[in-house]
């Protein structure tokens, strides 16, 4: 199993940023998600975040909402998420689950952590879990040997950054902009400042996500961050593809372009 630590050590040794790709489980289909994520890994993604589809994704823009809606309509359950993680982890990428808090809360924090660890997952990203409410999850993750990734934002004052970073193991997720997920024309200039403000509070890698969608932007972010996170742009490729084979080709092509970007 590839750990986050080995991923970032390897990237650092190669003098580049790591490439992190996101896809919701069950999209475009249950098997299709594993195939697409595997293609992304083969074309250069170091880390995969598998999204746990949730009925009320209030941090997500239209692209991810659309994919998640299709996934839920396909009947995706937590067992499918775990199976997806299992399939993707086999490809050699460090595999995380990105999830809103309620599904984990309902499933049971300890049970979720145990099941994710046995599926080969290395940790979670929890975008609506604040440090104040994180105690049960930190304990369960530690017990199961899972990493915990939380988000800092351009609006976060330094005390908050310190508090959030203290909850993280694996890496710190810096949200590049004030807004929801989705590819943008350009990466927000605030992202670099946020990474700089985060550094003094942690020795962990700092990865930047939200709004990154092409090789040029990946290169730009890779100049100051340890990892580049891309989600909506991959989903867009799958949504726009006329069939599954061309969807796979399109995500492969994008992953290539991004992998080249983080190495520039």
């Amino acid at each position: 199993m590839t750990t986050l630590q080995t991923v970032f050590e390897k990237a650092r040794a190669e003098n580049r940023a790591a490439l992190v790709g996101y896809l919701p489980a069950g999209f475009p289909t249950k098997d299709g998600a594993v195939a697409a994520a595997t293609a992304m890994v083969e074309a250069g993604c170091d880390v995969i975040e598998i999204g746990l589809p949730y009925s009320d994704p209030l941090m997500d823009g239209p692209t991810i909402q659309d994919a998640v809606h299709r996934s839920l309509t396909n009947g995706t359950r937590i067992a499918d998420v775990m199976r997806t993680v299992e399939g993707v982890a086999k490809s050699g990428a460090a595999t995380l689950v990105m999830t809103y808090w309620n599904p984990v809360d309902r499933y049971g924090a300890e049970r979720f952590a145990r099941d994710l660890a046995s599926a080969g997952g290395v940790g979670t990203i929890t975008p609506d879990l604040t440090p104040e409410e994180s105690e049960p999850w930190l304990a369960a993750s530690k017990e199961a040997g899972l990493g915990t990734v939380f988000l800092v934002a351009p609006s976060s004052p330094d005390e908050r950054i310190a508090r959030v970073a203290a909850c993280c193991t694996g890496f710190v997720y810096a949200a590049s902009l004030m807004g929801v997920t989705g590819a943008r024309e350009s990466v927000n200039v605030a992202a670099e400042g946020l990474v700089e403000r985060t550094r003094p509070h942690t020795s962990l890698p700092v990865c930047v996500g939200l709004g990154v969608g092409n090789g040029r932007q990946a290169a730009e972010v890779a100049a100051y961050a340890d990892g580049v996170i891309v989600g909506s742009a991959f989903i867009r490729r799958l949504l726009d593809a006329p069939d599954e084979a061309s969807g796979l080709a399109a995500v492969r092509e994008l992953a290539h372009e991004l992998a080249e970007g983080v190495r520039r």
Partner: peptide, 12 residues
Amino acid sequence: GGRYVPEALIPA
């Protein structure tokens, strides 16, 4: 009660 929101909203 409490707060379960994106960190970006905590300062607001």
